[in-house]
């Protein structure tokens, strides 16, 4: 299908991009890797008035990490670069787990983590691990910068807390706490190229055999990547036992709100939430022993 007519801009600086975004107003879209927006345009699901590409802006494609401050992923940092980043593998293995299974090689080569978040699909693979890690997104506009917990960013399928005129310039991921462990797992009916019908991300902190803190986020089973608060409450402060993990699985399944669609039935998705919750908890515990 013919791409609908639109203006295409390639600003060289962030300020230029922000000015363009304001000037173009409603109907202007930001493009990072283009792996979502171009596909939507080709299928006629999105008809932007203008597209502002960020790829030529210096400095926002960086991935920076220090063991003192944590991790910052710039707006145009590609998924493939996350995948091959040794510090991310060491300190944030759940994020590596997520980008490893995302889409396919071609999409990983072009796509960005920030774009994956801004696209706000309930099944976005990077959202659950990043939320559990306590990530904060940096939203920049001509008025300045504001920081928002990623937890509060998603409002519905394709809907976010971002205002008109804002660009997500980076996502900041704090350092993992001592004796914490993270995990991300998803279900796939097919190796490699798939959109998961259910996924789960966990980050848990342990004191001896007590789970002192935990975050659990479920993907593709609600309109947004879903924080499973009830399950977290069930786990927090408890002695780590087989029964506890079993119960957490049931609770998470209860808490999820999946729909039936061509990928899976709601009923099966709930069962998978239980399985994934348990498996990520087990892996998070194992990994916590290394921190």
């Amino acid at each position: 299908m013919r791409l609908p007519k639109f203006e295409y801009f390639t600003p060289k600086t962030l300020n230029e991009a922000l000015a363009l975004l304001k000037e173009q107003g409603e109907g202007a879209y930001i493009m990072a890797g283009g792996t979502d927006i171009v596909v939507k345009m080709l299928h006629g699901r999105l008809r932007p008035k203008s597209v502002i590409a960020l790829q030529e802006i210096d400095g926002i494609n960086k991935i920076s990490f220090s063991p003192q401050e944590g991790l910052t992923i710039g707006a145009t940092a590609r998924i493939v670069n996350i995948l091959s980043h040794p510090d991310i593998l060491q300190y944030y293995p759940a994020l590596t787990d997520a980008v490893k299974v995302m889409a396919n090689i071609e999409v990983r080569n072009m796509g960005t983590v920030v774009g994956n978040l801004c696209n706000a699909a309930p099944s976005a693979d990077t959202a659950p691990p990043l939320i559990t890690m306590g990530s904060v997104v940096v939203l920049t506009s001509l008025e300045g910068e504001r920081r928002l917990s990623l937890d509060e960013f998603f409002k519905g399928p394709g809907i976010t807390a971002m205002n008109q005129g804002e660009i997500m310039t980076s996502v900041f991921v704090p350092l993992p706490q001592p004796r914490s462990g993270g995990s991300y797992k998803r279900i796939s009916a097919r190796c490699g190229v798939d959109i998961a019908p259910a996924s789960a991300g966990t980050m848990a902190v342990f004191r001896d055999e007590i789970c002192s803190d935990v975050k659990l986020v479920l993907g593709a089973v609600a309109p947004i990547p879903l924080r499973a608060y009830r399950t977290e409450n069930l786990l927090r402060g408890k002695q780590w036992t087989h029964e506890l993990i079993q119960d957490a699985g049931y609770e998470a399944a209860e808490e999820s709100m999946p729909i039936s669609d061509c990928r899976a039935s709601a009923e099966w998705r709930k069962k998978m939430v239980a399985v994934l919750t348990r498996r990520t908890l087990v892996e998070a515990y194992e990994r916590s022993k290394k921190n």
Partner: peptide, 16 residues
């Protein structure tokens, strides 16, 4: 037909 694309029509890949 609801799954008219290769993302949702699950043909096995070489990896499978």
């Amino acid at each position: 037909t609801l799954n008219a694309n290769f993302a949702d029509y699950k043909m096995p890949t070489a990896m499978d």
